[in-house]
C-alpha cells in the first residue's frame, strides 16, 4: 500500500517538473520571466518549509539567510570578480554558516522567544547592510555586472538559460524536501514538531535534529539568495528586511505547511495576486495582510494541507 503511495507522489512531483519544463515553450515573455522568478522564490519557500513546516520552527529571520547568500555572491562578484558558479557555492556556504551560528544560539529558546530571537538577529543583519553601506550601498543596492552572470559559459541574462537554471534549482530543492519528508529524519522532525518533550524522552537529540533542519533550511535559503542575485542581477538591503522573512511564511502557509509542493502553490498564487492587484492599487501589501489574516482564520493548513486532509492522504 505504502509503496504505491510513494510512486503516486513521485509521479506527481516529476509531473510538475515536466509541466514547468514544457511551459517555457508556450508562455509569453512576461509570464516566462515571472515563472522563473516564482520558481526561485518558491525554492526559498521550500527551504523555509523545512524549518517551519516539517520541524515546527517558526523563524522570523529567514531574510538573514537569504541575504547572506545574496550578499556573499553579489559582493564577491563585485569586488573579486567571482562568477555565477562560485557565487552559488559561496551562497550555500554563507547560508549554512549563518544558520549554524544563529541556530546554536536561537535554538536554546522555543516558541515565541525563538521567533523574537530570530527576528532580532535578522534585524541586526538588516542594519548591518546599512552600516557597511560603503560596500553594500544600503537601500540603493548595486547591480552585478552582467559579464559575471554566466554559468558554464552560458549567460544568465538570456531568458532561456535563466529559466533553466531556475527550474534546476527548483527541482533540486524539491528533491531535498521530498527526500527529507520521506526519510526517517523527516519523521523525527515531525515528531519534534508535534511533541518535543516526548521526542526527547524517546532518546532523540532534539537540539541536534533541530539544528540540522535549520542549517539545511538556511543553506537552501542562502543558495536561493545567491541564485536570485545572479539571475536577476540586483542586490539590495530590501532583501534583508523583515518583509522577506514574512513572505516565505505567507507562501508556505498559503500553499500548506509540511507539504512538498505547498510552497510552490503558495508562491505562485501570491505572486500573481500581488501582480494583478498592483494594476489598480499601489498598496499591494494590503493584499498580503488580508491573505495572512484570511488564511490563518479559515485555512490554517493551507491549500494542499486541506487537500491532503480531505482527499489525498498520500501527499508528502
Amino acid at each position: 500500500m505504502r509503496s504505491r503511495w510513494v510512486n503516486k507522489a513521485t509521479a506527481l512531483h516529476l509531473g510538475v517538473i515536466a509541466v514547468l519544463f514544457a511551459l517555457q515553450f508556450v508562455l509569453p515573455d512576461y509570464h516566462h520571466v515571472n515563472l522563473a522568478r516564482v520558481m526561485v522564490l518558491a525554492s526559498f519557500a521550500m527551504g523555509y518549509n523545512i524549518a517551519f513546516g516539517y520541524t515546527g520552527l517558526l523563524s522570523l529571520g529567514h531574510a538573514m539567510f537569504f541575504a547572506a547568500g545574496l550578499y556573499a555572491a553579489g559582493l564577491m562578484a563585485l569586488f573579486a570578480g567571482v562568477g555565477a558558479g562560485g557565487g552559488l557555492l559561496l551562497g550555500v556556504i554563507a547560508g549554512l554558516v549563518v544558520a549554524a551560528a544563529v541556530g546554536c544560539l536561537a535554538l536554546r529558546t522555543t516558541g515565541v522567544s525563538f521567533m523574537i530571537v530570530t527576528l532580532m538577529f535578522a534585524q541586526a543583519a538588516f542594519l548591518a547592510t546599512f552600516y557597511f553601506g560603503e560596500y553594500t550601498r544600503g537601500d540603493e543596492g548595486f547591480v552585478i555586472p552582467s559579464n559575471l552572470r554566466s554559468l558554464f559559459g552560458l549567460s544568465l541574462v538570456e531568458p532561456t538559460t535563466r529559466y533553466f537554471v531556475a527550474l534546476t534549482l527548483f527541482s533540486l530543492c524539491m528533491a531535498v524536501s521530498f527526500a527529507i519528508a520521506r526519510s526517517s529524519m523527516g519523521r523525527v522532525l515531525a515528531a519534534i514538531r508535534e511533541n518535543e518533550e516526548r521526542t526527547r524522552m524517546l532518546g532523540y537529540n532534539v537540539f541536534l535534529y533541530k539544528l540540522v533542519a535549520l542549517v539545511i533550511s538556511g543553506a537552501i535559503s542562502g543558495a536561493v539568495g545567491a541564485a536570485y542575485g545572479m539571475l536577476f542581477g540586483y542586490v539590495g538591503a530590501t532583501f534583508a528586511s523583515i518583509q522577506y522573512s514574512i513572505l516565505p511564511l505567507l507562501w508556505v502557509l498559503m500553499g500548506g505547511a509540511a507539504t512538498v509542493l505547498g510552497p510552490f502553490v503558495g508562491t505562485l498564487l501570491m505572486f500573481y495576486l500581488v501582480d494583478i492587484s498592483s494594476g489598480f492599487t499601489s498598496a499591494n501589501m494590503l493584499i498580503v495582510g488580508l491573505a495572512l489574516i484570511g488564511l490563518i482564520l479559515f485555512f490554517p493548513k493551507g491549500i494542499l494541507g486541506t487537500l491532503r486532509e480531505r482527499a489525498a492522504p498520500w501527499l508528502p
Partner: peptide, 30 residues
C-alpha cells in the same frame, strides 16, 4: 473578528497580527 476566533493560539495570533499590521499600514498609506 480575528483573535477570538483563533482562540488566542500564540503562533496563529502572531501571523494574524502581522497581517493586521500590513492592513492598517496600507490603509493609512491609501
Amino acid at each position: 473578528l480575528v483573535l477570538r476566533r483563533l482562540n488566542y493560539n500564540p503562533e496563529s495570533t502572531i501571523v494574524a497580527t502581522i497581517g493586521l499590521l500590513y492592513v492598517i499600514e496600507q490603509v493609512a498609506l491609501m
